[in-house]
Design a protein around this nucleic acid. Sequence first.
DNA 1: TTGCTCCTCACGTCACGTGAGGTGGC
DNA 2: TTGCTCCTCACGTCACGTGAGGTGGC
Lengths: 245, 245
Amino acid sequence: MREQTQTWKIGEVAQRTGFTVRTLHHYEQIGLLRPSGRTESNHRLYTRQDIERLQHIASLRALGLSLDAIGQALDQRGALLETLERQLTALQQRREEIAALEAHLSGVIGLLREGQPASTSQLFDLMEQMTMFEKHYTKDQLDQLAKRREELGEDTIKAVEQEWPALMAAVKAAMDAGTDPADPEVQRMAARWKELIAAFTGGDAGIRRSLDTMYEQEPQARAHSGYDPQVAAYIQRAWEAAESA
Amino acid sequence: MREQTQTWKIGEVAQRTGFTVRTLHHYEQIGLLRPSGRTESNHRLYTRQDIERLQHIASLRALGLSLDAIGQALDQRGALLETLERQLTALQQRREEIAALEAHLSGVIGLLREGQPASTSQLFDLMEQMTMFEKHYTKDQLDQLAKRREELGEDTIKAVEQEWPALMAAVKAAMDAGTDPADPEVQRMAARWKELIAAFTGGDAGIRRSLDTMYEQEPQARAHSGYDPQVAAYIQRAWEAAESA
DNA sequence: TTGCTCCTCACGTCACGTGAGGTGGC
DNA sequence: TTGCTCCTCACGTCACGTGAGGTGGC
């Protein structure tokens, strides 16, 4: 009538379950799985129940749960479903983050491969711009911008990028000379300024707003483009003069 | 003619770049970014070049690179493209792993919600089975099995699952009684056995092979289904007798 | 006596967060 | 003198891997 309870030493348990001895030590240390007994010489003894618990741990670990979450799920029956749902949400979120990183990374790799930027620092300039863009524009807006660049063609884009600094310098010169914003030459430059922005935004008001916020919030963006708030205010006045005319 | 080099203290750098002071300490400690100077009172002084390097670090960190990889990429120009490509591959792999986890987890949550398994230990049995299945069957095979279950309908599946243990017990009894495998009654049971397997596999040879390997390699699977190698060998002989007849 | 298994520390990993305890400039 | 910034340790995080040094059973 003796209840003979079979037990296993740690090495046997390790071999049968695929856990390492160290891992079993660890699980005992954090209180996740305490072997039911010890031999006289202090060797751990695991019962069938212990091994069952270990298998449950393995199942939950296979779902990516943390040891902490596993402990809670096993000790408070009923919390299981909720724990798993939280885990699913966390995984989905993590996967979306990774997908976004991948998109960003692919973009940078594309720049590096095709554009062959002249210098490393130029590459980093480009990367910073990309990061800023991805921060201030929605995904739809970025798609629109990409389509627009394609429509315009590389040559047009390069031409515009070269024209910008020249135009800003000319406007700044007129401003510094105290020229009236209503002056015909300034009006011509203001109109051209408007055209260049429209070429970039494609006339989309949302993209225009995102562009403005980016320049407001990112000193980097201002520094990079040579944007000057005083010049911007001056152009603003020129536009207003044109409207009231 | 004095070259006046502007410098910033750690708090200023932190504020402008969005890193924390502790992080800058850390970057110095691991040699990723060493400020170019110190004041008399030992306060760190960062130059414009230091801050540029910090911005490059930020760009690369935004791509998910480890600090170690960032250090290498920045110190050995040319290694950059390769580093980024490795990172992209790693991210893709990680994303696929997460997707697989999600699929597994969704399955388990589905079981928990719909099936409402009677006890926790029953749920874990189911989970272990799922894990084993996902290990031994290809994705295509799992899809096929799912489709097949749908075709058969819940009632048929339950009926079959109930019939199994009874059939195995009957065969075992015949075997224990020393009945000849060619005996008509044993032949009837062997034929039924074949039908039940076919109902599960849908006659697919690949699925049949996966099922066999699973029973060979997973003591868990054998224990769970009550599978007995001696009974299996007996059935084998019955099938051979049927063929040679 | 020789292997093999078991034991208990305890450091290292990754990228910092969070104090603790103290000093220097306005 | 009071704040504020700066400094240098140093522990904690997560799930163990990897020794180090030593003991017990066949």
